[in-house]
Nucleic acid binder design. Structure first.
Lengths: 127, 127
DNA sequence: GTAGCCAGTATCTAAAAGATACCATTGAGC
DNA sequence: GCTCAATGGTATCTTTTAGATACTGGCTAC
C-alpha cells in the first residue's frame, strides 16, 4: 500500500500533484477515451477527437507515452504506419475517465441552467 | 435519462465536451477536493491548494460558481468574509474526483518508472 | 505529372497562466 | 495617531501554452 500515506496531491512538489494535473489536461481524457476501443492510428485519432491540431495532439500523445499510459508502435511500411494503444496502466484509467465523461454528458442541462441563472443575476447587478 | 443519447463529448460543439474539458482544468480538481470537507474562505483555499496565484484562483472559482458547482457567500463584516462551498451538483463530483486523486497518488511509482525508461531509451536514440 | 495520404514538424499568433504589486477597510499593537 | 497585518480580491506585465496554418518526403493511384 504505497498510496495516501506516501503521496498527496495537496503537497507542493509531490509528483502525484503533477500527475493529477496532467490527467486533467485539456485533451488527455479525450485521447484516453478515444483509445478505449483498441489501437488507433494518428489520423484516425485526430479525426475522432476533432478540432485538435496535430501539434497539440502529438505533444499530448508524447506525454502520455512517456508516462507509460500508452504505447506507440511504428510499422515500417509505405507510408509508415503508427499505432497508439493503451497500456495496462492506461487501461486502469478508463473506468474513472468514463465516469467523468458520463457525468459531463448527464449534467449538461444542470450546468447550462446554472450559467443562465448566473449571467442573468449578473446582468441585473450591472447597475 | 437525458444522457448518452443527447450529448457526446466526441461531438464538436457539444456542451458536454466543454464541460468535461473544464473539469479537467488544471486547478478544478484541487479546488473541488479542497472543498470536500466543508466551506472554506478564499485565503484558506489559497493556502490549502498552494502555489496557485490569486488571479487564477479567482477565475477558477468564478467559473465553477457560474457552472453551479459551488456557492459563494458574502458576509458583511469587518473585513468582509467570503465563503465557498460545494453545491449539490459539485458534491456529486466528489466521488469521481476522489477516484482520480487516489489513482494519481497510487500510481506515482509506475509513472516515474515509465518516465525514466522513456528518457533512457530516448537518450540512446540521440545518435 | 499531379493530387493525395501518412505522420508528423516549423513558424507565427493568440490566449492563458504565473509573478508581482497594489487596493480599501479596519482593528491591533506601540 | 501611526504603522502593521489580514481580508478578498484586481491590475499590470511577462512567460508559457495552445491554436492556426503551411509544409515535408516518400509513396501510390489517377
Amino acid at each position: 500500500m504505497e498510496s495516501d500515506r506516501d503521496f498527496n496531491v495537496f503537497v507542493q512538489g509531490c509528483p502525484s500533484r503533477e500527475i493529477m494535473q496532467r490527467l486533467g489536461d485539456k485533451w488527455t481524457p479525450l485521447v484516453l477515451l478515444a483509445l478505449a476501443g483498441g489501437p488507433q492510428r494518428f489520423s484516425a485519432l485526430r479525426q475522432r477527437i476533432g478540432s485538435v491540431t496535430p501539434k497539440v495532439l502529438t505533444s499530448t500523445l508524447r506525454t502520455l507515452e512517456r508516462d507509460g499510459l500508452l504505447l506507440r508502435t511504428v510499422t515500417a511500411q509505405v507510408p509508415v504506419r503508427v499505432d497508439y494503444e493503451l497500456s495496462d496502466l492506461g487501461r486502469s484509467l478508463l473506468g474513472p475517465m468514463e465516469t467523468i465523461r458520463l457525468w459531463s454528458q448527464e449534467h449538461v442541462p444542470s450546468v447550462l441552467r446554472a450559467r443562465e441563472e448566473f449571467d442573468r443575476t449578473r446582468d441585473d447587478a450591472t447597475l
